[in-house]
Design a protein around this nucleic acid. Structure first.
Lengths: 364, 364
DNA sequence: AAAATTTAGCAACAGCGTTGCGTAATAGGG
DNA sequence: CCCTATTACGCAACGCTGTTGCTAAATTTT
């Protein structure tokens, strides 16, 4: 993810990331697996594997192949060679997870946050939680950093919280900087929904196409995975999906417009008609499909997960009923595979991705 | 754009593309310009420049620098070293443009297409038009190919027209393949709106951020430029922006849903209330901004360009009026800088991009 | 005229994936 | 049991990339 210039170090990082992606997706793999997946020559893969073994990131795990010829060496990722901690900062709770290099959530913990908490209060809560988690197996030395998934608007590029919705003490807070100083760890700050979709992409591996994570939790947000990377937008403020108008003559929203998806959905939910609320959300989801042509839609969020099957059914039905969608336009709809951990886990995976993922080139 | 494995040939292509992008954006440039823009060392830039000069793509254009020290050599792109032809296939017209390596439209021509034209009729029209254009300066040998921007749905990856809206004879037509055979040229097929946004991105150069092209022309479509590349979606069918619901209680659309942007807009335009139609479109545009966080919105399309100022004013006003958009959320709104040529020109630029643009890596 | 400054490029280098080829380890057949 | 075919692995040389070190050239300033 870090920008590098296009020299040979980029090649190294890129091809190493390919092998790591294979290792993360498959439980075990051999040289030929990687050759097939990457198009590299066997010899090149051998060199990459040798480097990764030297770094302790992968290791041989026996041999295989009950067939003719010399048996192939089987490799596997070393899950506990690196860790990252992910934090999901919501309005009243802090969720912390410990994620290993394989993308597995090893620990998860939720603690309450004071009403209208301050940056200092958050930092203290983070500090306590991280010390507890990092002390579990003395893995401080293998900790690559902390990822924070938070409500926006925020400036991902500069690690700045612009104006967290509904939190008074969060205006232009340089959270990444002060957290790094306070915690002594590299910190990565991103919107909650963007972190969430990263988690889904990581878990699904190489074949994961364009996708959206829809989160219903005191507001409606969308995280996007487009073209093999998280989409954050020009000002890293993408995802205000709840504030798209679906009803020109609808009620006035807090944002000033009329008939936003969020207010229409909220009114229906408030009235107790969850099925209707779910159908409203489904209209918004189909709007996204029409615009962006997505392969996957993932549903999550505390409010949605209180009625998971209702929402899942409504969205699935709406996607399937769209008459314009021919058979070649397949889209999967699913609940988040990580449940309530998805945001925090994704934030952690973003940290790991900075080290072991595909390096980002300046696009010019 | 072509997929390559991450070896040194990728580095070469990538860095050459960086220099070409600089040359396209600036009229002239020197070595230090490129060094600054790319982060490469001066020596590396010298090598790249030498390669490009050997290929005839750039050339020295005197010296400069009325300052201390040895004067720097000034380079420039050789615009007429390579050409591409772009075609915009609409329901009743075929527009052909000749674009040079610098992205300049050198010739433009419109010819009518028969009602409900067949693939054969289109190929014949293309053949005649290309021969005329390529004969203008005997530039057949410098012609890199033909780009076709067409109404969808189509399969960009396989060059297949699935089901062009409103055209009876266009079901699962392998247009790229048969056109290549018929014309003897490499052919690139893409949706009209995607080609259009490529043109805008090319013309604006390196600093062009996430953007959308909104096209109103017998339907409403959207082309997207996200993260430094065109966004086509999981099934290369992104852009059906006109079929997003903005009025849950609105009239039934041809697509089967109620209150699509397209039908609501169409009703207003039909009633002669262009200002209202423009405001409806503006609601849809703001929806896009909320979802995707775009830096630029470009307006085009025959129907829109009949009332350019009305639409421009309505969209600009709606974007500016959005109370949630703080000062750091700036978005430019403009009419297409290439006017009616934008689709065809973008299709041509996509062809040039395959050869001289940033190579695409398999994202895994 | 000499010094300072900036640009350009040759030459050697490190590091990447690739190619050529020899070696190791297995199954199957005589 | 031995031989052969087959498959996997890796050393060594190679071509190419951008980088580094250094020299030469061209201009302005002193």
């Amino acid at each position: 993810m870090t920008r590098v210039t296009a020299d040979v170090t980029f090649l190294r990082g890129y091809n190493q990331a390919l092998v790591m992606a294979v290792g993360r997706t498959a439980r075990t793999f051999e040289r030929s697996t990687v050759v097939e997946a990457t198009g590299l020559t066997p010899q090149a893969v051998s060199k990459v594997i040798a480097r990764l073994i030297a770094d302790g990131l992968i290791r041989p795990a026996g041999v295989r192949r009950p067939g003719i010829g010399k048996p192939a060496v089987v490799y596997e990722l070393v899950p506990d060679s690196r860790y990252a901690i992910g934090a999901h900062v919501a309005r009243r709770t802090l969720r912390l997870v410990l994620v290993d290099l394989a993308g597995t959530v090893r620990h998860s913990a939720v603690s309450p946050l004071p009403r209208d908490f301050t940056p200092e209060q958050l930092l203290d809560a983070l500090s306590v939680g991280i010390d507890t988690m990092a002390g579990l197996g003395d893995l401080r030395s293998r900790l690559t950093g902390l990822g924070i998934g938070m409500i926006g608007p925020l400036d991902h590029a500069n690690g700045l919280v612009r104006d967290a919705h509904g939190l008074r003490h969060w205006h232009d807070v340089p959270l990444r900087e002060i957290a790094e100083k306070h915690l002594g760890l590299p910190v990565h700050l991103d919107k909650d929904v963007t972190a969430g979709i990263t988690a889904e992409a990581w878990r699904h591996g190489a074949t994961f196409g364009d996708a959206a994570l829809i989160m219903v939790e005191s507001g409606i947000g969308g995280g996007f995975w487009l073209g093999g990377a998280a989409h954050r937008g020009a000002h890293t403020n993408a995802g205000e999906f709840g504030h798209t108008v679906v009803d020109l003559t609808g009620p006035r929203c807090v944002c000033g417009r009329h008939g936003c998806l969020e207010i229409v959905h909220h009114r229906a939910a408030e009235a107790g008609d969850i099925a209707h609320a779910a159908r409203v959300l489904a209209v918004g989801v189909v709007n996204l499909l029409q615009t962006l042509d997505l392969a996957h839609v993932v549903l999550t969020g505390a409010d949605l997960l209180r009625h998971p099957q209702t929402y899942l059914a409504a969205v699935t039905e709406a996607v399937g009923a769209d008459a314009r969608r021919a058979d070649w336009l397949s889209t999967t709809v699913a609940l988040s595979s990580l449940g309530a951990d998805v945001i925090a886990a994704g934030a952690a995976m973003q940290v790991l991705d900075q080290h072991y993922g595909i390096p980002e080139l300046a696009p010019i």
